[in-house]
Design a protein around this nucleic acid. Structure first.
Length: 315
DNA sequence: CGGCTTTGACCCGCGC
DNA sequence: GCGCGGGTCAAAGCCG
């Protein structure tokens, strides 16, 4: 394990605003002002960006994403810049400082494989899934194990993950409404954290998107949500009129072409409201038009948030 | 009654 | 090889 698996970093806006202000490199930008607003355009935001949603369900590459966030397309630059920052944290630490520990596979490790092996991961993921989700209870052919989970998995086939991204929100509710329908399929205690981690799967057929939700043990008011995969469908129309209306159908043109999004990135949203509804709106706006001058009633301009997103890049 | 949550067990990768 | 921890399954229970 010499290949530094620190794939993912995030900037803790909640606690390190001051660092941001005096940070180095590209982070030497004004910290987001929730209530206020000022323009970040001058900071070099490129109008040619991709939406958050596109990250979820459409193809995109790191460079475009980077430029979208006003970061240099030069991955190494981004990386080093982040590295030198006040608080580079990998997702392992998020799970309540835990993960880091024994650490087995975390976002980081798993994704580094994606990063390095280019864009075929998605396919693998699918086939990998089909062994379970695809063929549910095959009943273990009544052979030996009657209750063992028949996980016939080919050895040698390394499990690959969909690209993921995570963001933090200040919220009292763990499961933030994001417009999609999720089914909880598991919950695990997080090592070194009093808060459990919940696992959700998109209930839409053939949609393999998953998400994990956990509360930061360092800041219990913060919820860490990690998405994995890309939605291949629009937001269920039945979901809160507001949410659905917010997304033009054209925005959901199926673009399942495998994970062309090679990296994980971590987004942190400052000061979310406490109500699911509020969070929902906020998130959705961000997801779809991260660079637009959305005026968020209680949280200020989205443009103030964008700079808080940042990327990582494995050299 | 269908869909969702809960929860214990199992699988698997990784570090020691 | 073993143990640990993360991730997933699936039966059972809950709820609208």
């Amino acid at each position: 394990m010499s290949d530094e698996p620190r794939d993912l970093y995030y900037h803790d806006l909640f606690q390190d605003n001051q660092h941001l202000a005096s940070g180095t490199g590209m982070y030497n930008q004004k910290p987001p002002t929730i209530a206020g607003s000022s323009a970040y355009n001058s900071q070099g935001f490129d109008p040619s960006y991709l939406s958050f949603t596109e990250c979820l369900q459409g193809p995109m590459d790191y460079n475009s994403l980077a430029s979208a966030f006003g970061l240099s397309p030069s991955s190494s630059e981004v990386f080093s810049s982040v590295e030198g920052n006040p608080k580079p944290i990998d997702v392992g630490d998020l799970g309540g400082g835990g993960g880091g520990g024994g650490g087995s596979d975390n976002l980081v490790t798993q994704n580094s494989s994606i990063s390095s092996s280019s864009t075929e991961a998605g396919v693998e993921e699918d086939s990998d899934k089909s062994k379970k989700d695809g063929q549910p209870k095959e009943s273990e052919d009544g052979g030996e194990s009657s209750k063992k989970v028949g996980k016939a998995k080919k050895k040698g086939e390394k499990k690959q993950r969909e690209p993921r991204f995570a963001f933090m929100t200040k919220s009292e509710v763990d499961h933030l409404e994001d417009g999609y329908r999720w089914r909880k399929y598991g919950q695990k205690a997080v090592k070194n954290s009093p808060y459990p981690r919940s696992y959700y799967r998109c209930t839409t057929q053939k949609c393999t998107v998953k998400k994990r939700v956990e509360r930061s043990f360092q800041d219990p008011t913060t919820v860490i949500t990690t998405y994995e995969g890309q939605h291949n469908h629009p937001i269920p129309a039945t979901l809160r009129g507001n949410a659905a209306a917010m997304f033009p159908p054209s925005m959901f043109t199926p673009q399942i072409r495998g994970p062309t999004f090679p990296q994980d990135f971590f987004v942190q949203m400052p000061q979310m409201g406490n109500q699911g509804g509020a969070n929902s709106i906020y998130s959705q706006n961000l997801m779809n038009n991260p660079h637009q001058q959305y005026q968020l009633p209680d949280y200020g301009l989205l443009q103030d948030i964008i700079p808080s997103m940042f990327l990582k890049q494995e050299p």
